[in-house]
Design a protein around this nucleic acid. Sequence first.
DNA 1: GCAATTTGACCCTA
DNA 2: TAGGGTCAAATTGC
Length: 320
Amino acid sequence: MHEIIERSVLYQELAIQEITRGYKLAARLQTFIPKGEPQLELVGILLEEVLQALSMALSMLKKSGNTCTQTQASREQIISETSSASFSDQGSTEAPEEVKIPTSASIVCGKRERQQRLKTMDPWTKVTYAPHDDGHQWRKYGQKNLQKSKLARSYYRCTYKDEGCPATKHVQQKDNNDPPLFLVTYYEQHICKTNNNPMIITPQITQDPLLPVEPNLFSFESNANKFFCYHERAMLKASTTDQQDSDLERVDLQNVIIDQTAIGSVVNNEQYCLEAVPNSTIEDFSLSACMSPPWEVMSLDYLQMDSFGFDPLHEGFPSF
DNA sequence: GCAATTTGACCCTA
DNA sequence: TAGGGTCAAATTGC
């Protein structure tokens, strides 16, 4: 028994060494990516995710080494602790140090602790026309009329909160357009059964379509069978005709191909970066997407362009 | 009857 | 003290 524990500890130390080495190599690689190069923006994003994953794995391994001397922590507690640790190390080339072990008094349990937690968490936001269609089940628990906005903010928590899932979000309508645009702010990651990838914590800030963005770089968002491509003044929206307005199972895409005029790559299961070829117009775009596996091509034959003050059919995309 | 939503009250932070 | 976040009883819908 004692020998098994010793061997386990040895493997854990080796794993920590290897992950630390991987973290340092990835951080070193990150320094070779020149800033202001839209072509390499996606590489930087992916590398950032690699660093986050390694950082989190390292924190978890170190944490697991201490569990024998700690009071038993719940799975969600461990994930919460290690995830916040991995966030705090962003931008550092040093491997992350061990996170603080919370005392029993600081373990989240009451309203005060929850509100403090919200302030210290790294929320991530996205702008969307379909705020409820994000692959998770939510229960609304409150609504508030905010002082600085005439439009109410709605508060949601995961349906599986009783099972320990800490995920929450609030949804605020940004304008009175038709269709209305919503700003969704997420707090905490899902650890419930609806989560596709519970161990990867990747806060993403989707580009606000009303704000300037990098030329040639689109923010591409996918919810189930709908795709949204954001640009400074335009939104590209597509879905398959036979799946419109239906709740079919979620499609995880690994790659997005835009008829040779653009290359899209997955950032995570929900977001895609889309790099368009200069001088292309909306007429050049026919969407297809590779599903994984077995890498079948799914044709998207419904394409719609919503513009914010310009006509893409005649003007083409701006800033190309 | 159960589950989800609504809404006023309460609590916390700045 | 104002504003924002959460609670929980009441209400609504299936």
